[in-house]
């Protein structure tokens, strides 16, 4: 057998060995992620706060077809009133979980809630709001998710508290629950008003 033929066979064996090594290499990567993810200081619900205290990004979003409320633009956030900016989508299950809290908040009328309909077909979103009720006084559509990028939206739902001058004062990731509402969001709104 010639030297090259031997090498070819050898290469074949090495390649075969490598295939058998693939699962363990993959697992090493996965467990690296797990280890990193377990960092006790990491809370998947807390977000980097680069946007905090910065003015809300410039945007203009057309209204959501099928609803009666107008669209949304940056100027609407500078009304002098504290507002909530809520990113939602009909396909998002946690949105459904937080929806009653938004309805409740809207009924109390303490704060205007603006919605950004994120990566969602307008007809699905408007049907969803028709079924569940519409807590928003303005809704912007962001079907492609472009506005969401400027806001640093990572997933739905997400809620921002905007002060009267249009600056972002707080960001809540994930569904709003009773705790978040009563302990953080409502007191902050009071504080910003006072």
């Amino acid at each position: 057998m010639s030297a090259t033929a031997k090498d070819t066979i050898k290469d074949g064996i090495v390649a075969r060995r490598l295939i058998y090594l693939a699962p363990i290499l993959f697992f090493v990567v996965v467990s690296g992620y797990f280890l990193w993810g377990l960092n006790p200081e990491r809370d998947p619900r807390v977000l980097p706060s680069v946007m905090i205290d910065k003015p809300a990004p410039e945007f203009t979003a057309g209204p959501l077809a099928g609803t009666a409320v107008p669209g949304l633009a940056t100027a609407d956030l500078k009304s002098g009133q504290v507002t909530l900016f809520n990113v939602f989508a009909s396909w998002c299950i946690p949105c459904r979980a937080e929806h009653p809290f938004l309805m409740d908040l809207a009924q109390r009328g303490e704060v205007a809630i603006f919605g950004l309909n994120y990566k969602n077909k307008p007809e699905e979103a408007s049907a969803w709001l028709r079924d569940l009720g519409n807590p928003y006084t303005r809704i912007g559509t962001d079907e492609k998710g472009r506005i969401g990028i400027d806001w640093g939206v990572s997933g739905v739902p997400e809620t921002f508290v905007i002060d009267g001058t249009g600056r972002i004062r707080y960001r809540h990731w994930g569904p709003i629950d009773k705790d978040a509402l009563e302990r953080t969001i409502l007191p902050l709104i009071e504080e910003l008003r006072g």
């Binding site: 996965v30 992620y33 990193w36 993810g37 990491r42 998947p44 977000l47 980097p48 989508a89 396909w91 998002c92 299950i93 946690p94 990566k119 640093g152 990572s154 997933g155 739905v156 990731w173």
Partner: peptide, 19 residues
Amino acid sequence: TMYPLIAETFGYKATVGAP
């Protein structure tokens, strides 16, 4: 399922839903 965790290591957050 793991994507949110992977995305986080690249500095952003993501949720992966039914779509």
